[in-house]
């Protein structure tokens, strides 16, 4: 299971687990436990994830939200669980020019500051929680 990341010098041994992309989605969960929407909301609102820097999420109750990315209102009805997962994990797989950061990725990044080097922005469980929350936005 670890074989796919073993060759990557920049990643800590289990920082990012391998996953399979089918079309424009990652169908299987990244973490053993299913996502928790309440925890996912906390991730989306938190400053560590920066989601609201770029996206409006009317449900969040946050005052200042950006519009560099599209509003996420109704995104749970527009995209499937698997599609959401891939968009959070690594949008660059869909669009090389995307402005959406890759939240679950550690390789082929440039000059990451030491405090974050070798770690993805979100853990596998946080990705799952975020997906669960976004699915409630209908």
């Amino acid at each position: 299971m670890f074989a796919a990341v073993a060759g990557c010098a920049t990643s800590a041994p289990d920082a990012v687990l391998p996953y399979r992309v089918d079309g424009d989605a990652i169908r299987e969960r990244l973490a053993a436990a299913p996502g928790d929407a309440a925890r996912g909301k906390a991730v989306v609102v938190s400053r560590d994830s920066n989601c609201l820097l770029c996206h409006a999420v009317p449900d969040s109750g946050v005052r200042f939200m950006g519009n560099v990315g599209p509003s996420l209102e109704g995104v749970g009805a527009q995209l499937t669980e698997g599609q959401l997962r891939l968009r959070i994990v690594d949008s660059m797989r869909l669009n090389r020019e995307t402005k959406m950061p890759s939240y679950y990725r550690v390789d082929e990044l440039n000059r990451v500051a030491e405090a974050w080097r070798g770690q993805p922005v979100l853990t596998a469980q946080q990705v799952e929680d975020t997906v669960a929350y976004l699915l409630t936005l209908r």
């Binding site: 950061p101 990044l109 440039n110 000059r111 990451v112 500051a113 974050w116």
Partner: peptide, 9 residues
């Protein structure tokens, strides 16, 4: 024009 940092922008 090079993507940099964990935010990859």
């Amino acid at each position: 024009n090079r993507r940099i940092g964990q935010m990859n922008l």
